[in-house]
């Protein structure tokens, strides 16, 4: 097993390398870094040239990539922008944990991301917990009550939700639970931010502000997974081994939750582990609508301003997360299914 994990991690290195290379090239046309950095006051071409040299943007792109990857403290850099590279560089490169400085606020990229990451994780983990609980409950229950009224209603609703774009769900729930509840004098849900500035960042405030974003982030996944769990459970319940378990006189809960679920869980666990990083995708739209100060909004803000270092940092972080979760999915699968052994 250890050897398998090591081999997979080794295989991931060239993959991440290629991804970073392609993304880095894509970034070059994303905007004008000089404008991003200096605002409107850098209009003189001499100033532009100087800034470019200071940032190392005058170098060929492949050299820029090399510096991004491995740093430039081993090469001479032109820090004062006079056209002569005389001082050793200060960047240590991604490989040594230095993602550079944000062009927008000149803070280290890692710090910029680090400030937002907890907010997104809070939202994501809560959403994932909701997704698991509701998807399992709905999926198993409607499998057990196949073709019942409940099952038919749930099937229709899940199909509806599965097809509904995130923003539409967000806008409709906002309109009902925030705008109209307020109008009708009912306790209404907040729509923007993490807490009321007047009330301060108390856990209760944050929890209250999380209701709508969490629902928005999880509804589509709940719908998708519960459909999936339903069909996986139905398939498992139709298998011979379930009949055997029944023939043994086992009580129904034991048949459903041990014999059937343990088999049905195999594909479910894999899919959930693979999808987890993709919750971030939904987080972009959700965080934008609800003004949630997380990574999704950070990404959006910095993409539109062409802040290459931050955008690269976020994308590489996600890429690593996806690769790791793919590995976790495989390991979980092997752990749950005795028929599979990785060597």
């Amino acid at each position: 097993m250890t050897r398998y994990i090591l081999r997979r991690l080794l295989q991931a290195i060239p993959l991440l390398f290629v991804i970073s290379l392609v993304l880095f090239f894509l970034m070059q046309n994303m905007g004008d870094p000089i404008a991003t950095m200096g605002g409107r006051n850098v209009t003189r071409s001499a100033d532009r040239e100087r800034l470019k040299r200071q940032l190392g943007l005058d170098k060929p792109i492949i050299v820029q990539y090399l510096y991004w990857l491995a740093g430039n403290d081993w090469a001479k850099a032109d820090l004062d922008g006079d056209g002569i590279a005389e001082t050793p560089g200060t960047r240590r490169g991604v490989l040594r944990g230095d993602f550079g400085l944000s062009l927008v606020n000149k803070k280290p990229v890692t710090q910029v991301i680090w400030e937002r990451l907890p907010n997104t994780l809070l939202l994501m983990l809560t959403a994932e917990a909701m997704i698991l609980i509701f998807a399992l409950l709905i999926g198993i229950y409607s499998a057990l009550k196949q073709y019942s009224t409940f099952d038919n209603i749930i099937t229709t609703i899940t199909f509806l939700f599965y097809s509904m774009p995130v923003f539409f769900f967000a806008l409709v729930t906002m309109y009902i639970f925030a705008v109209n509840f307020k109008k009708w004098g009912l306790p209404y849900l907040p729509t923007v931010g993490m807490f009321e500035p007047t009330a301060g960042k108390t856990p209760l405030q944050v929890a209250w502000h999380m209701v709508l974003p969490t629902a928005t982030l999880s509804f589509g996944f709940i719908a998708g997974y519960s459909r999936y769990i339903r069909s996986a459970m139905l398939e498992a319940m139709g298998q011979d081994y379930v009949r055997t378990a029944k023939a043994k006189g086992l009580p129904k809960p034991e048949i459903v939750y041990i014999h059937a679920l343990k088999n049905a869980a195999l594909p479910i666990v894999t899919i959930i582990a693979l999808d987890l990083p993709f919750l971030l995708g939904g987080a972009i739209v959700t965080e934008r609508i609800f003004g949630w100060p997380g990574m999704g909004r950070l990404f959006l803000d910095h993409v539109s301003r062409g802040d290459t270092p931050v955008v690269m940092g976020i994308l590489m972080m996600i890429a690593v997360a996806v690769v790791i979760f793919q590995l976790i999915a495989d390991i979980l699968y092997a752990w749950l299914d005795p028929r599979i052994r990785y060597t």
């Binding site: 298998q239 011979d240 081994y241 009949r243 055997t244 378990a245 023939a247 043994k248 041990i258 014999h259 343990k262 088999n263 195999l266 749950l336 299914d337 005795p338 028929r339």
Partner: peptide, 16 residues
């Protein structure tokens, strides 16, 4: 009353 089935591969639960 106990029962034994035809295909012992599918009649036994693969993950237990």
């Amino acid at each position: 009353l106990a029962m034994v089935f035809q295909d012992p591969m599918t009649a036994l639960n693969p993950v237990l």
